[in-house]
């Protein structure tokens, strides 16, 4: 038995509804049902990702709630041609994690990210649309070896320096660097064709 609203694809359960469309529905008509679906999908994943990176459960819960509340507030700013729902929500979660973790020091870093994100792609001929990029990056990531995937996760999600990744995985620094280089050239190779 599979849960309602899910469909099996390549052995994994994936949602039937389109996340981008849910955000658009929120922007158009403050659709609470769409928000509930989006919340139930993304909030536990934001929380899970943060906890995996060592964030305490309570803080991860707070960031996840704030992230989805921000999605509700800023739904009208979502541009599906620039990024998929997952990528957009991941950047919101990153900004809120910074805001909350650096609350006492009045960090302005999330404003800096927002100023940079205001720019559209400035080379309309050359740039890959965000949506195309997301499709390609996701496809390329499924082809990484488990070893490569793990270094990508530590370096690109948890933001560890190469030195710290080497320490955590108890592998030589040179191995970390070569795995990341291979993973990056694989990801970029997929994007080059479109640039």
């Amino acid at each position: 038995m599979r849960p309602a609203g899910m469909v099996a694809r390549r052995g994994r359960l994936v949602p039937l509804f389109d996340h981008n469309a849910l955000i658009v529905a929120i922007a158009r008509s403050a659709d609470r049902e769409a928000f509930a679906k989006l919340f139930d999908h993304f909030a536990p994943r934001v929380k899970g990702l943060l906890m995996k990176a060592g964030t305490p459960a309570e803080l991860a819960e707070e960031v996840a709630q704030e992230t989805l509340l921000t999605v509700w507030r800023k739904a009208s700013l979502f541009d599906p041609s620039k990024a998929s729902a997952g990528t957009w929500i991941a950047t919101i979660a990153r900004n809120l994690r910074i805001d909350i973790a650096r609350r006492e020091t009045r960090s302005r870093l999330s404003q800096v990210y927002e100023i940079l994100d205001e720019d559209g792609p400035e080379q309309p001929d050359a740039a890959v649309s965000g949506a195309e990029r997301d499709v390609l990056v996701r496809a390329a990531m499924t082809q990484l070896s488990p070893d490569q995937y793990r270094v990508v996760e530590l370096a690109f999600i948890e933001g560890f320096s190469h030195q710290d990744v080497a320490k955590r995985l108890a592998i030589p620094l040179g191995t970390v660097k070569s795995r990341l280089r291979l993973a990056l050239s694989h990801l970029r190779g997929r994007l080059e064709d479109l640039r």
Partner: peptide, 14 residues
């Protein structure tokens, strides 16, 4: 950022 989005989509929910 796109890779981060992919990892979010693949994250184990809590």
């Amino acid at each position: 950022q796109s890779a981060q989005g992919a990892l979010l989509d693949a994250a184990v929910p809590v």
